[in-house]
Design a protein around this nucleic acid. Structure first.
Length: 885
RNA sequence: GGGCUCGUGGUCUAGCUGGUCAUGACGCGGCCUUUACAAGGCCGAGAUCGGUGGUUCGAAUCCGCCCGAGCCCA
């Protein structure tokens, strides 16, 4: 090992490069091997929308712990990396980066610009991920926009369509009149807006009038019904009557529905197609007419009569003026209310009826729920979210988007009869806008004109296929001579779906954030299950979010964002990894600089201790037949740590694994064992100590390797690579317990004695190497006497079990409440009182007599204090006592 | 508005099925130059476990309500 302090900058960049160059993390499996020896991870492909942030660092690092742990457990780990670059996020990035609008470009031209911008960001992102030592196999990568993935995505569409799991329907969608596109629910946000509430008088046909309050008078021409709440007695007489719409004159039925908010306005509400989400629900639930008054650009349609051609805002003002003139406007007042706006442009959304493609979900909710139950959830509680999401599902999944960039539907429609014509599987990927359909004439009506579908897939429709993308799922045409097979069997018609790497499916672990359980996870389960009949994941690991130092969400608007760049310019990557290992999986983790500092200190400790080990035992030694008591004790302690750490890693309890290792390494190994080993090995030949020192040290390196990837590799290469048959510590075997037997009790007692003597010196302001004349240990520390004497510089050390000059007096009784409570119930208070008052004694059998009760000896422990009358000072060392003279 | 989650010393955190001195880290104070590490070691102070009511002999732990925070969905 090099002299001097640990230099993470050099070490980390050196190894990051070597791991990639030497393909240390290459997936080496093949389809023929046993799936139990493979561990596949469905790495979340980041959306290409900007730079790497702390959430990425955290999430990828947690995944890396799992990858490294399983790789060391002799599994071939498949840890791929993808980019999700076919969606809106990437379009937006491109627009922002280049200062353009997609509407101003030809579709292909804009797509090209997206590719260029994304490629740049992806290159940078990839480097950043490498610099975090994420042990991804960089030969296994994909982009969701690449041809292979487009093919998979279109194949998926065709397969579901042929299975009858997809349909096309005219239905309301969320529409941004400014951007002139359909948008999805997730792209909208709530915003507080000032508005005016207008009280408008409606007349009942052949009767009185009633008042409706609305902020959207321009929607009057789109009114198709009026609703009152079924419990609303004051308006109950309206139900069943017909209402005439002021100014427009058309009549609508007055109905009742529980979704009416009785508190707002008069409790009577108009339903327009469409003003808001509730209108859509009413439209569908009550099978209402469709009156579209506002078109795609926010302009009034012919339905608006005289107002046609005005913008909706202008129409609103004009209608209010006319209502006032007609005497139908009863009141207007300013209010603040919440409206749904497009998060990107801030313009309030409209709801339009358009033709969309859907994936059928609602008929198989129980199936998808059961699939969720079959997966192992880390943490378990996250299953609840999945469950509630499915139970609350009301809609099938709309997968079509009216966007510039994205994967096109492989579909054309007959210009005459609207018959759906799908692309041939072997022609995929296709772009129907530039390619002809596979038929010359419509199979239904014989017409020869076709209209291409110009919608693209929702980005989740593709990202929900990542397990299949990774496993190389594809359609294989049958060989030419197989064409004669029974044409009733769809597979025999022309081929079958196969995977290039079937051993990768189902995937062992899906890691992801809890915010997208309802999107990515659920949709992946649905799609993969429908395509393969198998649940895609054995386990799911859900990570929390990174919060700021004050436990608040990081966001640009709050200005509390911490950039990975800043962190990593000040701290080693291993320190950041140490910090990331500080949470229970699923919990949010606040960014804490002290957490990184603690990691940095551990790196330094590990480095310095390693230098000492190397100087004490520079060469490999044969394992002696007999190991000394202290060595056996250390190895036995280490065995416990190996078992505990292994279990913690298996359960994804990273913080517990980390802290368990740190504690044993720092205190048992460094503070206790190493200090003693110095005395045994300096100038002396002690094969037992030399072998044990190296064996333990080498195991600590392996145990720390998943978390502290760089420093362990650097040390391990210098000290152990030559004698071990692995090119990297990350390819070495995960430690198994050695099964060394030791007198653990005597060892712990001995360590307690050392601790007591250290304290003794410290309290007296003595240097730790200050000599002690005589030490007498009252207690069994057999086999450890020399070690204690040497490390504490005791001239003479003797042990005795006879405590002639040490007298023990009873100072109290410690009840075992877990046993006493159930047995004595209410009497416990009295027993406590008796003990407190010192009003108790013991009988000849050792039973406790207190508060008129007799407690057997197994219900309590007697607290004793040692009194020492002889010469010297008495120290407490757990169940041993030490006298120093 | 609904669902889920979280709330433990100054800060972060352990504490599964209730058992009585609540774990550890960081920070803080004091002491110790010990030939790996003073960026180390030892010791110490610091918590009525968000609030409140209940179940129980006994509650950080179980239940109700309230307050605060976060995520998802309306």
């Amino acid at each position: 090992m090099p002299d001097g302090a640990y230099d993470p900058e050099t070490v980390e960049s050196t190894w990051q490069e070597r791991w990639v160059d030497e393909e240390t993390y290459a997936y080496t499996g093949d389809g023929s091997a046993d799936p139990d020896t493979h561990y596949a991870i469905d790495t979340p492909p980041p959306t290409v929308s900007g730079d790497l942030h702390m959430g990425h660092l955290y999430q990828f690092t947690l995944q890396d712990f799992v990858a490294r742990f399983h790789r060391m457990r002799d599994e071939t780990v498949f840890f791929p990396f993808g980019f999700d670059d076919n969606g809106i996020a990437s379009e937006r990035l491109t627009e922002d980066e280049l200062g353009i609008r997609h509407q101003d470009y030809e579709r292909r031209e804009f797509q090209q610009l997206c590719r260029e911008v994304c490629t740049e960001y992806e290159t940078q992102f990839r480097e950043n991920v490498r610099d975090l030592a994420i042990s991804v196999d960089w030969t296994q990568t994909y982009q969701t926009i690449e041809p292979r993935v487009r093919r998979v995505s279109q194949l998926s569409f065709l397969d579901l369509y042929e299975q009858g799991r997809e349909y096309r329907e005219r239905a309301p969608t969320i529409w941004c009149p400014d951007c002139e596109t359909a948008i999805s629910q997730v792209e909208t946000e709530d915003d507080e807006r000032d508005a005016q509430f207008h009280d408008i008088a409606f007349s009942v046909v052949g009767g009185d009038e009633f008042v409706i309050s609305t902020t959207r008078p321009e929607l009057l021409p789109a009114c198709v019904a009026v609703f009152v709440h079924p419990d609303d007695e004051s308006n109950a007489d309206l139900v069943g009557e017909r209402a005439r719409i002021p100014l427009f004159g058309h009549e609508v039925l007055i109905r009742e529905d529980e979704r009416v908010d009785r508190e707002t306005g008069s409790g009577v509400v108009m339903c327009c197609t469409f003003g808001d989400q509730t209108d859509i629900e009413w439209y569908q639930a009550h099978d209402l007419d469709l009156r579209v008054a506002i078109d795609e650009s926010g302009t009034m349609t012919d339905v608006a009569g005289d107002y046609a051609g005005l913008s909706s805002d202008e129409a609103g003002e004009a209608i209010v003026t006319d209502l006032e003139e007609a005497g139908a406007l009863r009141d207007r007042r300013d209010i603040t209310h919440t409206v749904n706006v497009h998060e990107r442009c801030g313009v309030g959304v409209e709801f339009l009826v358009t033709e969309q493609w859907y994936v059928r979900l609602l008929d198989k909710k129980e199936t998808y729920l059961e699939a969720g139950r079959e997966m192992d959830w880390y943490p378990e509680k996250m299953f609840t979210r999945y469950k509630h999401w499915i139970e609350g599902l009301q809609w099938d999944w709309a997968i079509s988007r009216q966007r510039s960039s994205g994967i096109p539907f492989p579909v054309w429609y007959c210009a005459d009869c609207d018959e759906v014509v799908t692309a041939d599987r072997d022609s995929l990927p296709v772009d129907p806008l530039s390619e002809a359909p596979p038929v010359d004439a419509c199979p239904a009506c014989g017409a020869t004109e076709f209209v291409p579908e110009d919608d693209v897939f929702d980005t989740w429709a593709t990202s929900s296929l990542t397990p299949l993308i990774n496993a190389g799922w594809d359609w294989h045409e049958a060989a030419a001579d197989g064409a004669a097979a029974d044409d009733a069997d769809p597979a025999a018609l022309g081929g079958e779906f196969r995977m290039d790497s079937p051993e990768l499916y189902p995937v062992d672990m899906r890691p992801q954030g809890h915010d997208i359980i309802s999107f990515w996870l659920f949709h992946t389960v649905v799609k993969c299950l429908e395509h393969t009949g198998e649940v895609p994941f054995d386990s799911v690991m859900i990570n929390g979010m990174v919060l700021d130092e004050r436990r608040e969400k990081m966001s640009k608007s709050r200005g509390n964002v911490v950039e990975p760049d800043e962190v990593l310019s000040e701290y080693p990557v291993d320190a950041a990894r140490y910090w990331a290992a500080g949470s229970a999986v699923g919990d949010d983790l606040p960014y804490k600089e002290t957490g990184l500092k603690a990691g940095e200190r551990l790196l330094r400790k590990l480095w310095n201790a390693s230098k000492l080990v190397e100087s004490l035992a520079p060469e490999p030694v044969e394992r002696p037949d007999d190991l000394q008591a202290l060595d056996r004790f250390l190895l036995a302690e280490l065995d416990s740590t190996v078992e505990a750490a292994t279990e913690h890693f298996e359960r994804r309890a990273f913080a517990k694994a980390r802290d368990e290792l740190r504690t044993t390494f720092w205190h048992t190994f460094c503070d206790d064992y190493l200090e003693i080993a110095k005395g045994r090995l300096r100038g002396d030949d002690d094969p037992s100590a030399a072998w044990t020192l190296r064996a333990a040290h080498e195991r600590f390196l392996r145990l720390f390797a998943p978390v502290l990837a760089h420093v362990t590799e650097a040390v391990w290469q210098d000290c152990y690579a030559a004698e071990r048959d692995a090119e990297s510590v990350h390819l070495a075997d995960w430690p198994e317990p050695l099964g060394v037997t030791a007198d653990r009790a005597a060892g712990e007692r001995a360590m307690a004695v050392v601790g007591a003597l250290r304290r003794y010196k410290s309290e007296r302001g003595l240097p730790l190497n200050d000599p002690l004349d005589e030490v007498v240990v009252h207690g069994d520390v057999e086999g450890f006497e020399r070690a204690i004497a040497r490390v504490m510089h005791a001239e003479s050390l003797s042990t005795t079990t006879a405590s002639a000059d040490v007298e023990e007096v009873v100072t109290g009784v410690d009840l075992d409440y877990a046993a006493v409570g159930p047995a004595y119930g209410e009497r416990v208070d009295d027993i406590d009182a008796g003990l407190e008052a010192g009003d108790y004694e013991f009988d000849t059998d050792g039973a406790l007599l207190v508060a008129d009760e007799r407690l057997d000896p197994d219900l309590f422990e007697v607290e004793r204090e040692r009194r020492f009358e002889g010469e010297g000072t008495l120290l407490d060392a757990g169940d041993a006592a030490v006298v120093v003279r």
